[in-house]
Amino acid sequence: MIRIENLTKYYGKFKAVDGLTLEIPEGSVFGFVGPNGAGKTTTMKIMTGLLSASGGKITIDGVDIIEHPEFIGDKVGYMPDFFGTYDNLRADEYLEFYAGMYKIPQNEVPQLVDDLLELVDLSEKKYAYVDSLSRGMKQRLCLARSLVHDPALLILDEPASGLDPRARFEMKEILKQLKTMGKTVIISSHILPELAEMCTHVGIIDHGVVKSSGSISEIMQNMQKERVFSVKTLGNAGFDTINMLLSELPYAENISVNTDEIVFSYRGDEDSLARLVKDIHDKGVPLLGFSEKQGNLEDVFMELTGDDENDENKK
């Protein structure tokens, strides 16, 4: 379990992280989401020991790593969003170097390197020079590097950034494997649909404050106060009839007639909904589809971070 309590960080007078409090369950894949400048990278860098905190506490496995930064090296693996590699070094030598930096015993290193390269699907590139690898391969190699010391917690800052769709897919597959290995993974990303697919939990941060956090289903449920439905008809016929029926239906609101569907929100019971469907059919409207729209992480993100942006624009 990772617990962040009241974390604060000032850059001069600017408060980048403002009393951030979060709980990340062990073994989860935690998506850290927020607009640019929200405080995600700052929080991650404090967790890796690269930055000091102005206040607060971060506990990993019961150890406050702000008080005891000497434990970070053992517990945390980090992959930054921008990273460099070394010229004239092979992939295996690159991993051997970091194995040495993490004080892995010499006799264990060759097998470790082979295992890590296999995990990230780079076994064929073992003897290739790092600067000859594609961006996606370098990213995977960097992920392997962050696993060299078998950390319990992995922090990945924009792991899929700049990758083509195939490379992103390959990265996703590796992250799924890490999940099955029981690692706790914190991912920061702007690609929300992919985060929604990969993550078990999400934290949405803006202006250094957590706006919402928890499992994805919890967040969706909390945000969706009402259900949203979509009605489609053959050739878009009967929209007027449906509009009339909806205006008579109690608890049906926000009726919106779009190009190829009618969308409305509803807070009533299932029986009234069933009667509505029957009425539409009885009126001879050729019903093609009547379905509930599932909320998505992007909508939640836009709603939670949208007010502050509007306030900024008004200023």
């Binding site: 690269l50 053992d74 980090y78 930054p80 990273f83 970091y98 930096m101 993490y102 004080k103």
Partner: peptide, 13 residues
């Protein structure tokens, strides 16, 4: 300049 510095200083060395 090569952006390898951060990865060095977070190790156990």
């Amino acid at each position: 300049e090569r952006q390898t510095f951060d990865l060095l200083i977070i190790t156990k060395t």
